[in-house]
């Protein structure tokens, strides 16, 4: 038996100048220890792994930088600008991240509100434009809002990353309609970032047709992060293949699966 849709026929995810086999991207924050983090990332089979830029803690004697634990030859390290509340801050962090890292990619965050961590889209669009002109491949974390997404694409982003729900909330995909609309209208890849809580959330998100998912807390805060990472890898693949397969139409009435003829009197 041959299948018309499988992961072999699914082309790689191309973002800017790079192609990725895995459509799951994972963060490195909030793990209980580095060994668990590394095992979870391996279990997820993700290639793109996000990291944050922070001051070296000069009062600690032990080296705690993540490069002591993650091999940059094995993973594509994507620096973020998490914690930035203005375009200028985000631009500064992006430049530092480029120096610390190994590529021109940045996951751009400009946060507008401390409670919800929702993005400041005006600051985001400003920072994205500046960084794109400097040669960055900008992947912008944004609202599930079509107009912001279109403006970010216009500003030169290599990918747009609308949220499923707020960062670290685990509320899952709150607005599948808007995610679908963004995917339908943008030319650059759409990678849903933030809010996924468990594997079914990841699967449903991929079934909307988006190009990938980035997640951190759902894996790091699971009871067993390594097992959840494995589940997320399977869910992203299942959701992707289901999207490519094309789901049956929804109906408000039942349609029998068994023959309606040949029934006994």
């Amino acid at each position: 038996m041959t299948t018309t849709v499988d992961t072999q026929t699914d082309p790689p995810l191309v973002i800017g100048t790079r192609a990725f086999r895995s459509r799951l991207m994972v963060g490195t924050g909030k793990y209980r220890d580095n060994a668990t983090m590394v095992r979870a990332i391996e279990a997820s089979r993700a290639e793109v792994v996000t990291v944050a830029v922070r001051r070296v803690d000069l009062n600690r004697t032990k080296q705690d930088g993540i490069l002591y634990h993650l091999d940059p030859d094995r993973f594509f390290l994507l620096a973020n600008t998490a914690g930035c509340f203005t375009a200028d801050e985000a631009i500064r962090y992006a430049r530092l991240g480029r120096e610390a890292g190994f590529n021109e990619f940045v996951k751009l965050e400009v946060i507008g509100d401390r409670d919800t961590l929702l993005p400041d889209t005006a600051g985001l669009i400003e920072a994205a434009g500046t960084l794109a002109k400097e040669g960055f491949q900008v992947m912008a974390y944004t609202n599930e809002d079509l107009i912001s997404a279109l403006r970010l694409e216009d500003a030169g982003c290599a990918a747009v990353m609308p949220l499923a729900s707020p960062i670290g909330s685990g509320l899952g995909l709150l607005n599948p309609y808007h995610i679908r609309v963004i995917k339908e209208r943008l030319t650059v890849p759409v990678v849903v970032d933030a809010g996924v809580g468990t594997a079914s959330d990841a699967c449903v998100t991929m079934e909307q047709g988006v190009d990938g998912i980035l997640m951190n807390t759902a894996i790091a805060e699971a009871q067993d992060p390594v097992a959840m990472a494995h589940a997320m890898g399977l869910a992203v693949e299942a959701g992707r293949v289901a999207y490519l397969a094309g789901r049956m139409p929804r109906r408000e009435i039942a349609v029998p699966s068994s023959p309606t003829t040949g029934l006994l009197d």
Binding site: G27, T28, G29, K30, Y31, M37, T50, V51, A52, V53, R54, R55, V56, L58, D64, G65, I66, L67, L77, A79, N80, A82, L96, G97, A100, G101, I167, G168, A194, L214, M215, N216, T217
Partner: peptide, 10 residues
């Protein structure tokens, strides 16, 4: 002077 490096993040 600022001295920065990569740490875990999402």
């Amino acid at each position: 002077v600022e001295l920065v490096h990569f740490v875990g993040g999402g």
